[in-house]
Every structure is written in structure tokens, then in C-alpha cells.
């Protein structure tokens, strides 16, 4: 190969193979140039780096880490480890919605609203309310008011009112608590509650 590093697309994602014929500084400059030129393509990416004989000492790892960090890229160095980054890219583009975690039950009178995803470690009690533009993940049961932009995952759906996007839940299913989580989402104009990860059966 003639370049300091090669970017390869595989089933697992993008692999970067380093060329030991070049110096570390040449490699890092090349990486920076490539990532800058194709910022949008790489943003939020999960890249695997193959050192290919290059000595990855602590200093090199740090330099690589700060480089990928600037572009918001999570990367794994083969044989060493994964470095995850959720920072925004320099020009302000965010690669993913922010998720907040509320580590307790939402009680009556409490309202949580967030532009992004919300994780609740507990229940949403009947007088409580949770609103998210993305998804809501509840490690408990929903008795109160929820509204999400995309989907809602919970161990129990007996909501006072549940809305996904503009669709209101018609409460057709029986009130139950499940041992494993279910997901509520919009299908054909209605909110349906299904087992998470449900596979299509082979029944005709």
C-alpha cells in the first residue's frame, strides 16, 4: 500500500490498517486529513484500528485518542482496547441524541421532559409524567403519563395515557406486568405492544 493508512469497509464496520512503512506522525496527519475531509461520513462511527506492526505505545495511543475524540469517533485498537467518545464534532454536529438516566421511580407530581432518550430506573407512578423526543426505557412499570417520539420499553404497561408521536394508545391490551421487557411502538397508525426482539414466526 502506498498510503500511511487504508480505510476499509467491512460487515463489522470500518477498519483502518496502518502502514508501518510510514512514520507515526505521517500516519496521524493522514488520519486527521481523511477524517476532516469526510467528517460527516465518519461521525458516530465505530472504527477498528489495526496497528499492523506499528508500536502502539502509551504516547501514540493518547495521540490517537485525542484525534478520534475531536471527531466523536469510538474506536478499538486491535489487541489493546476500545475508546468510546460521545463528544460533539468541532463544527457542532451531534452524532447521536443525548440520553439521560433518572435513577429512581417517578412519583406523583413529578414531570421529566427531555429532548432525547430517557432511562427510568424504577416505575412511573400514576401521577407522574415522562416526555421524550426519542425513546423511553423504563426498568419498571408505567402507571402514569408517557409520551415519546419513537418507542417506549417497559416491564408493564398500565398507563394513564400513552402517546407515541401523535398517536394515543387505545389500551386494547390487558394490563399486565411482564418478566421481560415489552416495547410499545406505532404500527399502521396504532400503538402496539410487543415482546422486545420478537422474531417473525414461520406460521402461515
Amino acid at each position: 500500500m502506498e498510503q500511511p493508512a487504508i480505510f476499509k469497509g467491512t460487515l463489522e464496520g470500518i477498519t483502518v490498517i496502518l502502514n508501518p512503512a510510514f512514520s507515526k506522525s505521517e500516519i496521524l496527519s493522514f488520519l486527521e486529513k481523511t477524517l476532516s475531509e469526510r467528517k460527516v461520513f465518519f461521525s458516530g462511527a465505530n472504527i477498528k484500528v489495526k496497528p499492523n506492526g506499528i508500536d502502539m505505545n502509551e504516547e501514540t495511543i493518547k495521540e490517537m485518542e485525542s484525534l478520534f475524540k475531536r471527531f466523536g469517533i469510538t474506536f478499538t485498537i486491535e489487541g489493546i482496547g476500545t475508546f468510546a467518545h460521545k463528544e460533539k464534532i468541532d463544527n457542532g454536529e451531534t452524532s447521536s441524541q443525548e440520553t439521560i438516566i433518572i435513577p429512581h421511580t417517578i412519583r406523583s407530581g413529578q414531570i421529566i421532559s427531555h429532548n432525547g432518550n430517557i432511562v427510568i430506573l424504577g416505575d412511573i407512578n400514576e401521577g407522574g409524567e415522562v416526555n421524550a423526543s426519542g425513546n423511553i426505557y423504563v426498568f419498571g412499570v408505567i402507571r402514569g403519563i408517557v409520551s415519546a417520539g419513537e418507542s417506549i420499553v417497559s416491564l408493564g404497561f398500565t398507563p394513564l395515557r400513552m402517546t407515541i408521536g401523535k398517536i394515543v394508545f387505545g389500551n386494547e391490551s390487558n394490563a399486565k406486568t411482564y418478566r421481560k421487557p415489552r416495547i410499545a411502538k406505532v404500527e399502521e397508525g396504532k400503538i402496539v405492544i410487543k415482546v422486545l426482539g420478537e422474531k417473525k414466526s414461520l406460521r402461515r
Binding site: 412519583r107 406523583s108 407530581g109 413529578q110 400514576e126 401521577g127
Partner: peptide, 12 residues
């Protein structure tokens, strides 16, 4: 129970 839930939230 609903009122108690509210109160517990305030106490927490």
C-alpha cells in the same frame, strides 16, 4: 395512595 406518593416524592 396517590397522595402518599406525592408526599414521598417531596420528602425524597
Amino acid at each position: 395512595v396517590r397522595d402518599a406518593d406525592r408526599v414521598i416524592g417531596l420528602l425524597e
